[in-house]
Structure formats: C-alpha cells, structure tokens
Amino acid sequence: MPDTPILQVENLSKFFPVQRGLLRRTVGHVKAVNDVTFTVNKGECLGLVGESGCGKTTVARCLLRLVEPDQGRILLHGEQQTFDIASASRKEMLDVRRQMQIIFQDPFSSLDPRWRVTDVIAEPLLAQKVGRGEAGRRVLDILPTVGLGPHFADRFPHELSGGERQRVSIARALIVSPPLVVADEPVSALDVSVRSQIINLLLDLQGQMNLTYVFIAHDLSIVKHISHRIAVMYLGRLVELGTTQQVFDECKHPYTKALLASVLIPDPTHREQSYVLEGEVPSPLNPPSGCHFSTRCPFAQEQCSVEEPELRDMGGGHWVRCHFAEELDLSEGVFAPQFETQSASA
C-alpha cells in the first residue's frame, strides 16, 4: 500500500507529577511517555506492545487528548485539514473526534451502566450536534455492522455479555465513521471463545470501512496476527519499531526478543522455554540511568548504564533503540527461537 501518513506522533512526552503531603508538593515525575515518535499510515494496523507501566495506554490517551500531553506534536491528517491534537482548541477537538475514536479494554466498565445501548452508541453523534432522531436511525444502521440485532438498542449494558458489550463499544467508536480507531486492549478482558469473534470483526471492519488502527495489546500473538507494523515500548520509551516481520523474525532489541521468548505456545510438545527474562520492570518513577533496559539485559555493557541509546534507523523502516543493535545476534544463543513455524495440531 502507498505509505500515506494519517497520524504523526512527534516527540510525545507525558510526565505525571508525583505529589506528597498536605499541600500536594510535587516530589518527582513518572515519565509515562518519554519522547515517543512514530507514524501511522493510512489503512494499516500499528500494534503497540509492552508490559504494564510501559506507557502504551498513556500514549493512547494522549492521542485522544484524554490526558494532556506535556510535549510533542500529534498531527492528524484529516480529510480536509491537518490538526495538531496536542494543541487543538476545544472546537478543533470536536472535529478531531470525528476523525479518530477509541475502543476501551474493559467492556464492563467502559459503558455507562445507566445508559441504554442506543444512547451509548449515539453519544459521539449527539456530541457532534446530530439530532436525536437522526442519531437513533444511524444507531439502528450500525448495529448489524457489528453483529448485533436491532433489539439490542433498548437493552442496558448489564443485560449483555462481554462480547456483546465490546461490540457496542466498537459501534460507538465507528458511529461517526472515523478513519482512525485506537483500540486499547480490545480483547484482553474477553473470554477465549469470544476473542476470536471480536478480532474477526475488527479485521472485517477494517476492510469494509477502510479503517486505520492503532492496536494496543500485551498479547503478542494477537498483535502479530492483526498488525502490519509493531512498536515495542519499555518504561515510556519506544525501543523498537518495524514491520511485523522485522519485529518478530529479525528483532534487534534484546527486550523485544525477551518479550517474544516469553510468549507461551499453545502446544504441549514444545515446552522448552529456553530464556526467561530475569528481574522486574523497574519503577517508572526512577528508571535506570542510561538504557532503561540495561538492568535486565543479558548483553548489557558498561556503556549501556551510562549513555542512553538513540532510536536508530536500521534500514527498511526498522528502528531500534540499542547501542549494539548491529552487533547482537539474537537469532540463537540465549534466545531460542520461539515463533518458528510448527505443525499445529488440529
């Protein structure tokens, strides 16, 4: 596909102040998102992965201006004009919200328990000053698109199952026909037998409505399945960015490799878990000096704990934040290949 950017995130940072005491004095900052730069192209799905506390959800919230970014620009190339979301006015944000919507992780908490399904789905339309009658008609139009019957319109969320709720959540995001959708862990709260339905639905809708996704997840096998490109985050930093193939098969950052090696394979005949990353994710309040991963990295050198590496282009749109990205051989040795092709049982 032609790489036309629809969203450009430049040097995005968000530091949450840590406050203590009676007068809430600021004693430090959690660098939730630290100088993150990436681009999302039209029609693609960009996967954003990392462990808890890596800042992926904060990135999503900054993109929607649900938290105020501290630094950086978020350029959204709309149909007619380009917005900088980071500095958009309230009026511009209303336009932005017609171009970009979000699907939340937990379908149980992201729907107001006191609203009927039709009101939930219509909320973005009403915010855009669409009349109630028109909004109601459009809700009835979109319900079959997400696989729900018209009788769901009058139900309350507590009458719905998790999968049905997530469909409502998807309908709410798509009701204003936004070209860009941020999906924040949309399947991780769902039952196993329902997950594949929702993934299929997201894939279908992307084809039908020509959507672009930013897909945030911690489940690497799902991210691999749905994404064209993948960004890996660790402690607020982007550590690797590339196509799915580059990240999964030719990864250059030790953290990415460790993450891949931790993925459990649903096959009892492949049990060798040759490499398990030691230690814990350090506190984002006080991240290690130099390379944030240096405390857990099996290849860490002296340089790593002193000097913070830059995100460098390795060619072919493959970006890596590691001093030794060129030299490290991550294909074997301590890391056993985990995502090799296997004959899966049927």
Binding site: R61, L64, L66, M93, L94, R97, R98, Q101, I102, F104, Q105, D106, S109, S110, L111, D112, P113, R114, W115, E123, P124, L126, A127, Q128, S169, R172
Partner: peptide, 26 residues
C-alpha cells in the same frame, strides 16, 4: 477515572453532559 467517563470524553461529550448524564446519575 472510570472508563465510561473517559469514553464519554473521547466521544466528545461536553462537560455538562459528562457531569449531569454520566457522573451524577452514577
């Protein structure tokens, strides 16, 4: 901080809507 208030803001709902239709009823 709950998700449905976040969702309301992401939907573009105004502060009065958030307060009087989401927060206070809940």
């Amino acid at each position: 901080e709950s998700d449905f208030i976040m969702a309301g803001r992401a939907a573009g709902s105004s502060t009065p809507t958030i307060l009087f239709r989401h927060l206070i009823p809940n």
